[in-house]
């Protein structure tokens, strides 16, 4: 007992360091949490919107998959239903294309133009896209259809935010 004597000075400095440490941590923790908050959010599935489409049910024929999300216009919130064209390509990869025409934003349809079978067709100005979403030269659109990133969760398809492609 006599060997491990703690002096009054030592005792006080230990206690002060301890209490000071707690106080510093109490101040810094919320700040750090604020700073890294965006990173934590992105890690959650939040950005992917669930659909009713089962991945196993997809064929190589594009189907319309609807999804609903909440859109906020200033103070006005509304439920908006949007859709995607989804199919499996020859090697079995899932492809999800945006139905928004790259010309002026109409909604394109699959296989509705009799003269051009198996194309995506825009009824507004007769824009055409091949099945993989590439625009057919000579028609108004100047870029391929946007592509949705997606994830599979419990067998269902979850769609992210459509992204433009680089190659024409």
């Amino acid at each position: 007992m006599s060997k491990n004597q703690v002096s009054r000075r030592q005792f006080l400095s230990y206690t002060l360091t301890g209490v000071g440490g707690f106080m510093a941590a109490g101040m810094l923790m919320p700040m750090v949490r604020f700073a890294i908050d965006p990173v934590l959010k992105a890690n959650a599935t939040g950005d992917f919107i669930p659909t009713k489409q089962k991945i196993a049910d997809l064929t190589n024929e594009p189907v319309r998959v609807d999804y609903t999300f909440t859109q906020v216009d200033a103070w006005y919130e509304s439920e908006v239903t949007s859709s995607a064209w989804v199919y499996k390509d020859d090697s079995g990869n899932v492809i999800a294309l945006s139905p928004v025409c790259k010309h002026l934003g109409c909604t394109v349809d699959w296989n509705t133009d009799k003269a051009n079978q198996n194309h995506f067709f825009c009824p507004c100005h007769y824009g055409l896209y091949t099945k993989d979403g590439s625009n057919v030269p000579g028609t108004p659109p100047l870029a391929p259809l946007d592509v949705f990133p997606f994830i599979e969760k419990d067998g269902f398809l979850y769609l992210g935010k459509a992204k433009p492609r680089k190659e024409a």
Partner: peptide, 9 residues
């Protein structure tokens, strides 16, 4: 809804 379909025309 109609406008969404034919936005460009």
């Amino acid at each position: 809804q109609l406008e969404r379909q034919f936005k460009g025309r």
